[in-house]
Computed example of a mutant assay.
Amino acid sequence: MTRIIALLLLHLPSAASADVAAFRAADADGSGALDYGEFTALVGHMAASGQRVARFVRDAGLHGTAFGRVDLDGDGLATPAELLAAQAWIDWYRANRQAN
């Protein structure tokens, strides 16, 4: 898992070290990917740190919807690459929404 995260950090600077720490904390089985329960824990960690989207997901109880959007290949796991893709989409959406 550490190698995957390190490689992603080299290529995608939007992944903050706090996000990596939250991922590691949520990855209870150390598999390098999050199942639904671990994803829910990740949302909790990120919401507690003040991330707006995570707070919205937690407060609205939209964990299942969010997990379905992150799990791009439908294998029941959220990988670091899928999470970073979701974050990139959120960043793109925010930038374009504010520009219009």
Results as ranks from 00 to 15, higher is better:
Met1Pro: 09
Thr2His: 10
Ile5Cys: 02
Leu7Met: 14
Leu7Asn: 11
Leu8Gln: 09
Leu8Asp: 00
Leu10Thr: 05
His11Ser: 06
His11Lys: 15
His11Asp: 10
Leu12Val: 08
Pro13His: 12
Ala16Cys: 03
Ala18Glu: 14
Val20Asp: 00
Val20Tyr: 10
Phe23Lys: 02
Arg24Trp: 00
Ala25Gly: 04
Ala25Lys: 15
Ala26Gly: 03
Ala26Asn: 00
Ala28Cys: 12
Ala28Leu: 15
Asp29Asn: 15
Asp29Ser: 12
Ser31Ala: 13
Gly32Lys: 08
Leu34Asn: 04
Leu34Tyr: 02
Tyr36Cys: 03
Tyr36Lys: 15
Tyr36Glu: 08
Gly37Ile: 04
Phe39His: 05
Thr40Asp: 00
Thr40Asn: 06
Thr40Tyr: 04
Leu42Arg: 00
Val43Arg: 03
Gly44Pro: 03
His45Asn: 06
Ala47Gln: 01
Ser49Glu: 01
Gly50Trp: 12
Gly50Thr: 07
Arg52Met: 01
Val53Pro: 02
Arg55Met: 07
Phe56Glu: 00
Phe56Lys: 12
Phe56Thr: 07
Val57Arg: 04
Arg58Cys: 05
His63Cys: 02
His63Arg: 11
Thr65His: 13
Thr65Ala: 12
Thr65Gly: 02
Arg69Gln: 12
Arg69Val: 00
Val70Phe: 03
Asp71Thr: 08
Asp71Asn: 15
Leu72Asn: 03
Leu72Gly: 10
Leu72Pro: 00
Gly74Glu: 05
Gly74Ile: 05
Asp75Pro: 13
Gly76Leu: 04
Leu77Pro: 01
Ala81Ile: 10
Leu83Ala: 03
Leu83Gly: 01
Ala85Gly: 01
Ala85Asp: 01
Ala86Leu: 06
Ala88Phe: 05
Ile90Lys: 09
Trp92Phe: 09
Trp92Cys: 04
Tyr93Trp: 07
Tyr93Ala: 11
Arg94Cys: 11
Arg94Pro: 01
Ala95Trp: 10
Asn96Gly: 02
Arg97Thr: 08
Arg97Ile: 04
Ala99Cys: 05
Ala99Arg: 14
Asn100Trp: 04
